[in-house]
Simulated assay, not measured.
Amino acid sequence: MAECFSNGVIIDQPPSLFPEDGEGAVNLKCEQDDNQHLNMYWYRQTRGKGMELVAYSVGKDISTIEAPFNKSKYSMLRPTTLSTTLRIHPAEAGDSAVYYCASSKAQTFFGAGTKLTVLGKTRYSQKGKRRKTLVCVASGFYPDHVSVFWQLNNQSITDGVATDPAAKRDADTGNYTITSRLRVLAKHWFEPQNEFRCIVEFFDGKGHTNQSATVSCKLI
Rank of each mutant, 00 (worst) to 15 (best):
R183F: 01
L86I: 11
E201D: 13
S103D: 08
Y43T: 13
P68Y: 14
R131C: 12
R130T: 15
A91W: 06
L82V: 02
N194W: 00
W42S: 01
I65R: 07
Y124A: 05
T46H: 03
M40A: 14
D144N: 15
I88P: 06
A2E: 09
F190M: 13
P79M: 10
K60Y: 10
Q36E: 13
K49F: 08
F141L: 05
Q13A: 13
G50E: 10
I65L: 02
V161P: 03
S96F: 07
F109Q: 04
P79T: 13
E66V: 15
H37W: 05
G120N: 15
T179C: 04
G120W: 10
L82E: 04
A102Q: 05
P143S: 01
T133M: 05
L182Q: 02
G128V: 12
D172I: 15
Q155G: 02
K129W: 09
I178E: 06
A2R: 12
I10V: 14
V118R: 13
C30I: 12
V146R: 03
F196Y: 14
V184T: 04
G59M: 09
G140R: 11
R181E: 01
D95P: 03
E52F: 05
H208T: 13
Q193Y: 02
T80L: 00
L219S: 08
T117E: 07
H37F: 07
N194H: 07
K168A: 09
G160L: 08
A55P: 03
P192Q: 05
Q151P: 00
K218D: 03
A93T: 15
I220F: 09
G8A: 00
A167K: 07
L219H: 11
G113M: 08
L38S: 12
T122I: 05
K71Q: 09
Y100D: 00
A166D: 05
F110R: 05
V146A: 01
P14R: 09
L185T: 08
V118F: 09
K218E: 03
D61A: 11
F149A: 11
S180E: 05
E3L: 12
E3I: 15
N153M: 09
M76E: 01
F141E: 02
Y56S: 11
R87S: 09
T209G: 03
I65V: 15
G207I: 07
D144K: 12
G174Q: 06
W189L: 10
A213P: 01
I220K: 12
V161T: 05
H208E: 07
L53N: 01
L182T: 02
Q193W: 01
P19M: 08
D61C: 07
V135Q: 02
M51V: 14
G205M: 12
P15T: 06
F5P: 04
G160E: 00
P165Q: 09
D34F: 04
G111Y: 03
L185H: 00
N210H: 07
S103K: 01
V200A: 06
N35L: 11
D204M: 07
